[in-house]
Each structure stands twice: as structure tokens, then as C-alpha cells.
Simulated assay, not measured.
Amino acid sequence: MNGVRSTWRSLRAELVKVWRPSTAVATGLLAALSVLSTVLILGLADDPAPGGGPPAPGSGDGAVGFTVTTTQLTAASGIARGFAGGSTFTGLLVFLVVAIAITLEYGQGTLRTLFLREPRRLGWLAGRMILTLALVAVALVAALVLSVAAAVVTAGIRGIDTSAWWSVDGARALATSYRNALLASAFFSVVGTALGVALRSTAVTLAAGVAWMFPLEHIIEASWNGAGRVFPGLVFDTVGQGGVADVSYGDALLVGTAYALGAAAVAALTLTRRDITS
């Protein structure tokens, strides 16, 4: 009961920080990334081949990584293509925001003062994580709405038929993409929190987390096909995309959940057993 009360107090205390300008900036950046991803994917989609069939991947005017055809975009799932394609950028932003926020608590001495008044550290951590997930969920709704609007405008400019988008299957595709993006963001958020609690330094946390989960993992993946099934950043990204060619959605979700639970355990143990001033 005390743990629940402590978590509720943490939620109420953290809500005060929600009204800071930084929250609006982070939400705006997330929405902007979703819109940018949508415009790029629809704008760079390959046109059908003259013979009527879709072109081979990468053979049209699409850039590498955006091998989508306009024929594919006319399907019901086309309405969610842009939003799902931005999952990597969304995960990076969520990781950055969470890691910076948690390490600043140490750098500014906020946690030391807080834990003098409220010694139940796990309650604070739980409340912090719950509120972060709630904020990400709201921000993703705004990003999804703007992504759909950008998709409609871009499709109109390119002459892509969107009649199938406004069907039950289209709504299901949007719901699925939102769920996947939320899960992937939650995974990145938990890992960012754990690294921040363990390392406590903004520079070190960002250097370790960003350098490993984004460029290094992708470099290793280029020479080892199994990297996408093992490394956290690639696994989380696979969840956000709903599965990729080499890794199924179910496998990625299982591994991602294991990483998130492990990271949460590390954060809890580090926070409770380590002196806050060390």
C-alpha cells in the first residue's frame, strides 16, 4: 500500500514538470519526425513499371531505405506506411529525451533533495516511468494524426489512390502501427532510464546508448545477419516496424520485452542500492 501511495505521489510531483516548454518541444519534434518520414516515404515511392508491374526494389526514384511503390501505397495499409517508417527516429528521440531528463535529475541535485523527503525510491521510479509512457502515448497520437494528414496531402500531389485507406483495414493498420510505435518507444524509454540511473552522466549516457544502439548496431548488422535478433536497438526498431524480412514481429517483441524487464531491474537495483551522492 505504501508503494502505491509513493508511486501516486511521484506521479503528482512529476506532473508539475509536464508544463515545461521542453515537453512541448519534445512533442513537436516527435510529430515533425513522423511528418518528415511520411513525406519522404510517399514522396520517394517508386512509380509502377511501364509494363504494369511494380519495379524491382530500388530501381525507381526511391532512395535507399524507402523501397516502397505507389502500388503498395494504394493498399489499406498505405495510410500507416509513413508513420511506421519513422519508428527508428521516434525511438532515438524518446531515448534522448528520457536519458537527458533522468541524468539532469542527478546533475542538478534534484533526486538528493527528493529522497530526503521521500525515501521510497522505487515508488518514484515507477511513477516516473508511468508518466513518461503516458506522455509518449499522447505525443504519438498527435504524431499519428499529423502523419495521416501529411500522407493525404502527399498522396494527392502524387496522384496515389487513397480510397482503400478509409476502410476497416485502414483503421486496423493505423491502430497496429500506433501499438507497435508505443511498444518500441516504451522499450527505448526503459533502456534510457536504466542507463541514466546507472551512469548518471548525460554525456556518458548518450555516448554509450546512442553510439551503440544506432550506428554501431547497424554497422555490425551489415556483416552479421543475426544482429537484428540480438541487439536491443535493432530489436526495438523491428517491433516499431511490425517485423522485418529477417526477424518476425513475435520474436522481436519477446526479445524486446526481455530487454525492457532486464533494464527495469537494473534501474531498480542501482537506484535502491547505490548512494545517491556517489
Rank of each mutant, 00 (worst) to 15 (best):
F214N: 12
V190L: 11
A222V: 04
L216G: 03
F115I: 05
S167F: 04
E118F: 00
L253G: 04
A126K: 01
V210F: 15
V210I: 13
A143R: 05
W124G: 02
V153L: 14
G123F: 08
T238W: 04
F214L: 15
A181F: 01
S177W: 12
A171M: 15
T113S: 15
T162D: 05
A245C: 02
I157V: 15
R121E: 02
A149H: 00
A175F: 11
F231H: 01
A149S: 10
V148Y: 10
A175T: 13
V230I: 15
M129F: 15
A155P: 11
G226L: 09
V239E: 12
S185Q: 08
V152P: 00
V255Y: 02
I220Q: 10
A175Y: 07
A171P: 01
W165G: 04
A150W: 01
L146S: 03
L174W: 11
F115A: 12
S201T: 01
E217H: 08
I219L: 14
A207D: 03
G156T: 08
T176W: 10
L234N: 12
S167C: 09
M213V: 00
L182I: 07
L140A: 02
I160R: 02
V141R: 10
Y178Q: 05
A151Q: 05
V244Y: 00
S223V: 15
A134P: 02
A207L: 13
F115R: 14
Y249K: 00
D169S: 13
L182D: 03
L234R: 14
I160H: 03
G159F: 10
A211D: 12
G243C: 03
A137K: 06
S248V: 11
A245S: 13
F214T: 07
R128Y: 13
E217T: 10
V136M: 07
I130P: 11
S167K: 03
M129Q: 14
L135S: 04
T193N: 09
M213C: 08
F231L: 15
S185N: 10
A171I: 10
V168D: 14
F188Q: 06
I157H: 10
A137G: 13
L133D: 15
L125W: 02
R120H: 14
V204Y: 11
V230C: 08
D161G: 08
E217P: 00
W224I: 15
T202L: 07
A203H: 02
L111R: 04
S223G: 12
A139T: 06
I219Y: 13
L140H: 06
A137Y: 00
R120A: 13
L146Q: 05
V190Q: 06
S248T: 15
V255L: 09
V136W: 03
R121M: 06
